[in-house]
Amino acid sequence: MNKLTIGLMAIILWSACKFNAGDKKTLPIYGNRHPITKTVDGKTITDTIYQTISKFKTVNQYGDSINNKSLDGDIYIADFFFTTCPSICPVMHRNMLNVYNVFKGKGDIKIISYSIDPKHDSVPVLKKYADKLGISGNTWWFLQGKKDEIYKLSESYLVQKPQEDAKQQFIHDGSFLLVDKQKRVRGAYDGTDTKQVDQLIADIKTLQNEPDQSIAQ
């Protein structure tokens, strides 16, 4: 019994120390995964295929075509919004501004906001919104695409699919999704919660330091 207690204490102590080694933290990889076997140099190896973000085609606030390839080599944060959203979008983008201010102009970090109301949110509307928010340059893109494609795309970001209620109001998920250079979702944060957004900023830095991040697929 006494030995058991000592053993338990040792385990607790060891895990406490391990917990403190926070700088070695790695982020989880979300979504479905499946193993594949392939032959490389005559040897059969097993690899894991992770769920990645589907292809998409959109235009940004400058009228430039933006697709999944435009984000090659970038870590990025995605959300879904619309410019006339009266409920959670203002607080989401107030919090996203904090992320923007930390990472703007820093090369391999991007923010993309997909409009779920592309009928209203045309390129000039998105440009005006970005201007008023105080966004310039190419760190944060506001994207207009085809509505059904954007709705479908939300599934690969593992968020609740947007929907419209009886009053044609859009209901959508307030999440910020962190996507790595291999286009895998590595974190989901409540964009209306400043504490979670602080965590997102910390996790982006963790992801930047991940060795794999230098190898773009």
Partner: peptide, 16 residues
């Protein structure tokens, strides 16, 4: 009000 106008009444850039 807070979602748009903020916890400290700070608004949001030139939008709100």
């Amino acid at each position: 009000c807070q979602n748009c106008h903020g916890a400290n009444g700070e608004g949001l850039s030139a939008l709100i």
